[in-house]
Amino acid sequence: MAEGKVEFELVSPEKLLLSEPVEMVVVPGEEGDFGVLHQHAPFISAVRPGVIKVHNGGKVTEQIFVSGGFAEVTPARCTVLAERAVAVADIDRGAAEQQLRDAREDLADEKDEHDRDQAERQVAVAEAMMAAAIG
């Protein structure tokens, strides 16, 4: 591993999406975004729906939307377990809008508390996805 770099891994249940040494990665944590550099203190956080930004050479080289999950940080590594991940460039605006509308309708229809929680989550994911698509 190159000096001063952090081994960044992004995995979804379906596959290993990304595994490479990067200079810095910014992850949308449950309680605020956090940046991970080499030698970060060990840290586990929930991830809220949002965009992961990979920094290399002082610039953002990759932006990936995740719909939530968990991040594990060790001094040498940053592993993000995402529920679903799409590169920001690949987000379909139309589909995202449709998803947001559907999610809001579902939320309005749900009566059961458990289902309501789930619908609320769906809306949050869809909103974050729209925000990511608009940039």
Binding site: G29, E31, P42, F43, A46
Partner: peptide, 19 residues
């Protein structure tokens, strides 16, 4: 090893229980 020999040295956000 990565934890510098201390396994339980993670910090948690929000909290350990919630995660």
């Amino acid at each position: 090893e990565a934890g510098g020999g201390q396994k339980a040295s993670y910090e948690y956000e929000p909290s350990e229980e919630e995660i």
